[in-house]
Design a protein around this nucleic acid. Structure first.
Lengths: 334, 334
DNA sequence: ACCATTTGGGTAAACGTTTACCCCTTCTCT
DNA sequence: AGAGAAGGGGTAAACGTTTACCCAAATGGT
């Protein structure tokens, strides 16, 4: 069987309490006992039992995280940043994939609550349907939303200013002479889709550009970008620019355009959102909106830790400014 | 405070033992008590404490997983498959990123062991240096390696047959008339890099093709693919085909070739490995070797569960056959 | 009608820690 | 030298479950 603190104490000839004190690095224990206990622990290969400790201490040193789809490269980027940051404080990450399904999301939230995670970082699937899961969780554990948020529910959030991000792309392509624009994005379930869509409309209005261009709303996946490209092509006339809701869509769309001998940026400008790892490797490299993963992760954990320290803090919504990354999918138009 | 089983028992007017029996669905408890307890639990919003349960039962219903780099899209694909499969058995995933560093990997392994995970799924960073971490873990918890393995160490493994996969690409391009081939891959630290390299050499030998082509070994990242492309271009003469160690490398390489007006597949054939999500979206779409994620994940869990059930099972190494996916990066050569 | 068996449910121990509380030394200060 | 403080270390309770063990009642068979 596994060696416990009792074995260590016995071997060192001290009480369990003393062994514990040594092993947790408490003061008030004489140097020779520290040596004896440490020695015994080393000899026996003692490892503390985190489960027992968690039960006693009432804190698991674990943070739960739920993302809609690990396969979408934007989320691993966030997960990676969060995980790295957690490691520096000796905590681990319990990761769940809600598979874009509010019901699964709900069950994952409860599972993490049951596991007594110290806090929860969630990218809610839906702006409306993720409501109940959040509500349930919030009574049990500190929670912060990242990237997306749910409507009409007061919980911390940190994310990029989606409206601003999209405006930047719209203004950018407008400055290059684009007047007619299509948007290809996801259906308006998530806050991300909603805000990006809203940003698109507002920017067009502000610039006095026509509002009657196509709005193709599907999912945040490349396959949808491909399908949407087909639809645009079938409609007969291409707009001056296609603003995509994220990079994955743009990638799929670029592929389909290429297959149809449409040249980007000469025939149409294309932009994405997220600046995923492959955005600079597409053909042509994709103009997009960069999300600062590290900053998002660190802000999220800052918020979470603040709330862990004090549960009844006022709700904060931190939106960080994204930055436009201009690449060839909009350059060299002239 | 949180509501415990004691509260439920009190409210239902039964002993804690009975409440527990009801809530864990044991037999031997009368129908009306079941009703009373369930009712109380519902009323009070009782959730069992998984930490306490784990301590008592000696099993956490948690599986740990360590990958070298979540950012590399191949790993999220595996993680996603594993996680989905775990959900069906009510278990959760404790995910760690070893950041390609054996030292970090070692500390993550121990952290997961401390947390009493029921089992460990690991993609070892290095074929040699991950040895100590594995050795330590194996005494504590069932463990299965996935994708990569460590040398000279008997632990379960499931992965794709790397040599076979690479052979398929080599034979494929050879059948298209390629005689000189370069390999662009990662340094031979990991079993994946090793086996793919070996497969490359063996295939060339078997086919009687020249063995003196360039072997550029760096990392499994796109940036390295880009740099390697530069080196190949500077060397003056391009080979007939470039066999890449994974898709990420191929993506970076394709980008750089394009920038230099090298046409693929007309001027050179290019292949990848993994069939990541974006392999069919590159320009041109990438011929590659598909890894069956779902199958790998399910085999890994099967192995793990078998070993959880019985620790002293004979070690198994399951290699599944990969399949070549031919796309335009090698087609239309003629 | 009596014994043997089953069924239902309570008592308490156990899982491996941490820590409040207490006691005994050993200082330090007057 | 005596009182008080401080340091060191042991005892035992607690964290929230599950479950072995036990006893009482009910059931069934003769």
């Amino acid at each position: 069987m596994a060696v416990t603190i009792r074995d260590v104490a016995e071997q060192a000839g001290v009480s369990i309490a003393t062994a514990s004190r040594v092993l947790t690095g408490s003061k008030n224990v004489s140097a020779d006992l520290v040596a004896r206990v440490d020695e015994s622990a080393r000899e026996l290969g003692y490892r503390h039992n985190a489960v027992a400790r968690a039960l006693r201490r009432g804190c698991t040193n674990t943070v739960g995280m739920i993302v809609p789809e690990i396969g979408n490269p934007f989320f691993p980027a966030i997960v990676e940043a969060v995980e790295r940051r957690l490691q520096t404080t000796g905590r681990d990450l319990l990761l769940c994939d809600s598979q874009q399904d509010p019901a699964i999301e709900h069950s994952r939230v409860m599972a993490l609550v049951d596991r007594q995670v110290d806090g929860l970082i969630i990218v809610p699937v839906s702006a409306t349907e993720s409501h109940t899961a959040m509500e349930k969780a919030v009574g049990h554990t500190p929670i912060v939303q990242i990237d997306r948020y749910v409507e009409e529910f007061a919980a911390d959030w940190v994310g990029v200013d989606d409206e601003l991000g999209i405006s930047q792309t719209v203004e950018h392509v407008a400055s290059l002479g684009a007047r007619t624009m299509a948007m290809v994005s996801a259906t308006l379930d998530s806050s991300a889709a909603l805000r990006r869509h809203a940003g698109f409309e507002k920017a067009l209005t502000r610039l006095g550009l026509p509002l009657d261009g196509p709005r193709l709303l599907g999912t945040f996946r490349a396959e949808w970008g491909r399908v949407a490209a087909c639809q645009l092509l079938e409609s007969g006339s291409l707009p001056d620019a296609i603003i995509c809701g994220n990079d994955e869509i743009a990638v799929g769309l670029l592929g389909e355009l290429r297959r149809n001998q449409i040249r980007v940026p000469q025939d149409v400008l294309v932009t994405g959102f997220d600046d995923i790892r492959f955005a600079e490797m597409t053909d042509p490299p994709l103009t997009t909106v960069r999300q600062p993963h590290e900053q998002l992760a660190s802000e999220a954990l800052r918020l979470l830790d603040a709330r862990i320290a004090q549960h009844d803090l006022p709700v904060q919504r931190i939106s960080v400014a994204p930055s436009l990354v201009v690449r060839q999918s909009t350059e060299g138009h002239a």
